[in-house]
Amino acid sequence: MVVPAVVTEGLKKSYGETKALDGLDLEVAQGSVFGLLGPNGAGKTTAVKVMTTLLKPTAGRAVIDGIDVREDPRAVRTRIGLTGQYAAVEERLTGRENLELIGRYFHYSKADQKARAAQLLEMFDLVDAGDRVAKTYSGGMRRRLDIAMSLVARPSVLFLDEPTTGLDPRSRLGMWDFIARLGDEGTTVLLTTQYLEEADRLAEKIAVIDIGRKIAEGTADELKDQIGGDNVRVSIMRYENIERAKEAIRTLCVGAVVQDPESPMTLTAPIRAGGGVVPMIIRALDDAGVDVMDVEVRRPTLDDVFLVLTGHGTQMPAEEESRT
């Protein structure tokens, strides 16, 4: 039987009275991309730090590739790559030197250090910037170099702590491509994120955590089903068309089409997530001769997930905010 890449059982980490982790159970299959989703202060970073041997758990177990992090942290360190929340690159060294440096820590020969660095620069689209000091890199480039550094020793599990936090939207998309490709290559990836969209795009399985505990787990679709998926809002030009509009879009929606009580020329209805339904809705309304003023899709946000799962949003009460 293949051992899971990561297992945690009843993982706890307390700082005095504060419980950063409160009995976290996770299981990540080999070769999968696993998303740990939660707001600031949910315990995501603490969980990553315990799994990567940076923090000792107060109770419970964390096992990487069958090795307990407490029993043999050094063996665990040979199997993991960690990209923390801050791009941990040596700014005054070039991208290439940063990569070679990691090879040196792993006691690679000079030739192997160079070869692996060159390989990773190419994979992460950093060939042209490879001989510039990292100080001159953009945020996205730094993050890419950071991930490349975590991959020098070909880890079997890669931990990415909020890999796109602080990146502009374009760099975020680029980063998603790189992470998706890692998953395709068979590297196990555990990533933490505050963005539902990001977990949705990248992770095969998502665990939602809150106050140091798992509150839901499943694929993105399963989670969205739990919270009701996307919603469409259609506003039309003339009130007399409202019934015709309802009829036209009924079959395209996955639930009841409801007239907004506060704005009678607006219909809302749940739709299947991410399936190109909106153009079909517009076409159907057009065919029915309904003049459309506005169509808007509301995707569930992390706030919605939390509202449904916990009854509170992502804004933590003040005394819990200090947890990370």
Partner: peptide, 21 residues
């Protein structure tokens, strides 16, 4: 991005244990 589609992990991910006496 125009990255060559070379393998990210090159071979299957195998842990590298630092050698050293």
């Amino acid at each position: 991005m125009t990255t060559t589609q070379s393998s990210i992990s090159s071979t299957s991910p195998t842990p590298t244990v630092p050698s050293g006496s």
